[in-house]
Amino acid sequence: MPPGAATTTVSRRVPLQAAVTLVVVVCVGCLARRHWSVIAAGADRLAVADRGWLLVAAVATAATWGCSALAQQGAVARPLPAGRLMAVQFAASAANHVLPAGLGAGAVNLRFLTRCGLPVARSATALGVKATAGAVSRCFLIAVFASACPGVLRLPHVSPTVVAVTVGVVVAAVALLSGPLRRALRAVLADVRAVHEVPARTAALWGGSVAFPSLHAAVVVAVAQALELPLPPAQVALAYLAASSAAVLLPTPGGIGSLDAALILALTLVGAQGGAAASAVLGYRLLTMWLPLLPGLVTLGVLVRRRVL
């Protein structure tokens, strides 16, 4: 390629990257303005909370990005640049508050993996492996805490009609997508085998996948302790795990609205007063979402500008 053509390509790419960054900035600004009353109320309640427990919650929040990076590395057989991987997870958490159902984080990680030289199909499979390990780990943690707190978690009654309709839809989908589904499953299983052939990758995948929701639950527990909620930590952790799993059924950017309502309801069901439960959720959101949002956005812009993404 002639030098002039390369310069033209780069000059075209830079305005496009700047436009993408500007769109993200506007979306985040609108999001923060719309929920400013929530941010202010959470800050007021945290101002009189126990500082030691809030520090524990802040440390646990920071550790979640490291666990996410660990799990992403474990889902890929080849080594990834550790510093960039950590920065990408921090930026992905900010992008996740703009698009629903984890699409923001998925898009950022997909772009990063392809920039690292992985084919698009292999990158998408790695994201699928990470998501599957995360779902299995979350179910495992719910089972552990539910056994430690018997009688707290009550499964909703599901009618046989709903079960039959669900099974019918799944069977029809499998029948219609049998060819593509088989190919996708073969690709996923091949990558799973490749990852689990390396013990270090296996430990990274499952260790990071288990630690990520555990640390988020620890943030809620620490905030509840800071606000002096009279609840056992195991019940608070179970309430978070159950609420965050239920909130997936109503995908919103960053779980805004769905996770908040589900977590407040879960905390009240295990014995917290409504106002105290709302304060705990506001504190959790302030630490895990609103405070890291601007630094995450700046990191995202820097990564885009440096063509890491």
Rank of each mutant, 00 (worst) to 15 (best):
Q73S: 15
V171L: 12
V221Y: 04
T114W: 00
V25H: 08
A62H: 01
V152I: 14
R182N: 10
L267R: 11
H216I: 06
A247W: 02
V26H: 00
P3A: 11
L85E: 01
A278E: 09
V248I: 15
A222T: 05
L185I: 13
V158A: 10
L229W: 05
A19M: 03
S245C: 12
L110V: 05
W53A: 13
V308P: 07
T114M: 15
V158M: 11
S279G: 13
G83K: 08
S93F: 05
A40M: 10
V23Q: 05
Y240W: 13
A131M: 11
S123M: 07
V210L: 14
T125S: 15
V158D: 01
S209A: 15
A194N: 08
G179A: 15
C27I: 05
L241K: 02
A204H: 06
A222S: 14
V198F: 02
W53N: 09
L155M: 12
F145G: 02
L263D: 10
T7N: 09
T166H: 07
P15R: 04
V56K: 04
V171A: 13
R115Y: 01
T125A: 15
D44A: 13
L141P: 04
G104V: 02
A32P: 00
V26I: 14
A19F: 07
A242E: 07
P2C: 05
A243E: 03
A164F: 03
V308M: 03
A164R: 11
A57K: 05
L231R: 08
H35P: 00
L309W: 04
M289Q: 12
A62R: 00
T9K: 12
M86I: 05
W206F: 14
V129Y: 04
V76N: 11
F145E: 07
A71W: 00
A43H: 09
